[in-house]
Amino acid sequence: MGISIWQLLIILAIVLVLFGAKRLRNVGSDLGGAIKGFKNAVKEEDKKQDAEEQDKQLEKKEGDNVFDVAAEEKQPAENKDKDKV
C-alpha cells in the first residue's frame, strides 16, 4: 500500500497553499546551495587526502633508492680459465 500519484499531488497542493510558491522556491534554492557546498567540501577533502597519500608515497620511494650490494672479489684471468676446464 504505497502512496499513489494522486495522493502526492494533493499533498503538494496543500504545501503550496500553506507556504506559497515564493517561499518554496527560496527553500529549494537554499537546499540546492547547501548540497553544492557539501559536494565542494567533499571534493576538497578528497584532494587533500590524495595529496597526503602522494607525499607519503614519495617519502617511501626516497627510502627505497638505497642500494645494498655485496661486493665480490674478482678472480684473475688464469683462475677463470682453470675453472672452465
Results as ranks from 00 to 15, higher is better:
residue 64 D to E: 15
residue 85 V to G: 12
residue 3 I to L: 13
residue 2 G to F: 13
residue 28 G to P: 02
residue 17 V to R: 10
residue 30 D to S: 11
residue 9 L to E: 02
residue 81 D to C: 03
residue 56 K to Y: 07
residue 75 Q to R: 05
residue 6 W to M: 07
residue 6 W to K: 10
residue 55 D to I: 09
residue 47 K to M: 13
residue 27 V to T: 11
residue 30 D to H: 15
residue 69 V to Q: 01
residue 69 V to F: 06
residue 12 L to C: 02
residue 76 P to K: 04
residue 68 D to L: 11
residue 73 E to N: 00
residue 27 V to M: 08
residue 1 M to L: 06
residue 41 A to K: 15
residue 61 K to V: 04
residue 47 K to I: 12
residue 59 E to T: 07
residue 3 I to R: 04
residue 28 G to Q: 06
residue 79 N to L: 12
residue 9 L to F: 04
residue 34 A to C: 08
residue 85 V to L: 10
residue 74 K to E: 02
residue 4 S to N: 07
residue 13 A to F: 08
residue 23 R to K: 14
residue 63 G to D: 06
residue 6 W to V: 14
residue 25 R to P: 00
residue 24 L to W: 01
residue 64 D to Q: 15
residue 38 F to C: 11
residue 51 A to E: 07
residue 82 K to Y: 07
residue 78 E to K: 01
residue 55 D to M: 12
residue 60 K to W: 10
residue 16 L to Y: 14
residue 42 V to D: 01
residue 67 F to G: 00
residue 62 E to G: 02
residue 63 G to T: 05
residue 63 G to E: 08
residue 57 Q to A: 13
residue 3 I to H: 06
residue 37 G to K: 15
residue 69 V to M: 06
residue 14 I to A: 11
residue 32 G to D: 11
residue 26 N to T: 10
residue 41 A to S: 15
residue 23 R to V: 04
residue 74 K to R: 05
residue 46 D to W: 09
residue 58 L to P: 01
residue 4 S to E: 03
residue 9 L to H: 00
residue 57 Q to S: 03
residue 39 K to S: 03
residue 26 N to Y: 13
residue 10 I to T: 12
residue 59 E to I: 08
residue 81 D to F: 12
residue 24 L to R: 00
residue 52 E to I: 06
residue 78 E to C: 00
residue 29 S to C: 08
residue 37 G to N: 15
residue 50 D to S: 11
residue 6 W to T: 11
residue 74 K to G: 02
residue 28 G to M: 08
residue 7 Q to N: 05
residue 7 Q to D: 01
residue 8 L to K: 14
residue 66 V to L: 08
residue 68 D to G: 01
residue 42 V to P: 03
residue 84 K to E: 12
residue 40 N to W: 10
residue 62 E to Y: 07
residue 23 R to L: 03
residue 71 A to M: 05
residue 74 K to W: 03
residue 2 G to N: 07
residue 80 K to I: 15
residue 61 K to Y: 10
residue 48 K to H: 11
residue 12 L to G: 01
